[in-house]
């Protein structure tokens, strides 16, 4: 089970959280102008990286707030968790190496 640091509550067990999929997907600013292909990209196509992923989590059995995390999908080690609305933080090579370890 993962140990996840909620930016609001601190470290908690994974069972308190639900995963919300890929982070930083913006809703279309002008939905009426989207083509079918663009809708498919927005709704269904996802990054599925073997390596660092930016993903959403919700502290469902805690503060119930969404936040984002960067995690290495090869090891499941978290690099950082951060509040919704913040841009995706830069990951230093040292942090990336630590997460891949």
């Amino acid at each position: 089970m993962l140990l996840i640091r909620c930016p609001y509550c601190g470290e908690r067990a994974e069972v308190e959280f639900s995963n919300g999929g890929e982070a930083h997907i913006d809703r279309p600013a002008d939905p009426m102008s989207l083509s079918a292909e663009e809708w498919a990209q927005f709704l269904y196509m996802r990054d599925n990286p073997k390596g660092l992923i930016a993903e959403r989590w919700r502290h469902a059995h805690g503060c119930n707030r969404f936040f984002n995390a960067i995690r290495d999908t090869r090891t499941d080690r978290f690099v950082v968790t951060y509040e919704i609305g913040q841009p995706r933080p830069d990951v230093t090579p040292e942090q990336a190496a630590e997460a891949a370890r």
Binding site: E14, E55, D76
Partner: peptide, 13 residues
């Protein structure tokens, strides 16, 4: 498990 992972393992829960 609910999250994207390539680890070929998962949580015991």
């Amino acid at each position: 498990d609910s999250y994207v992972s390539y680890t070929q393992r998962g949580g015991l829960h």
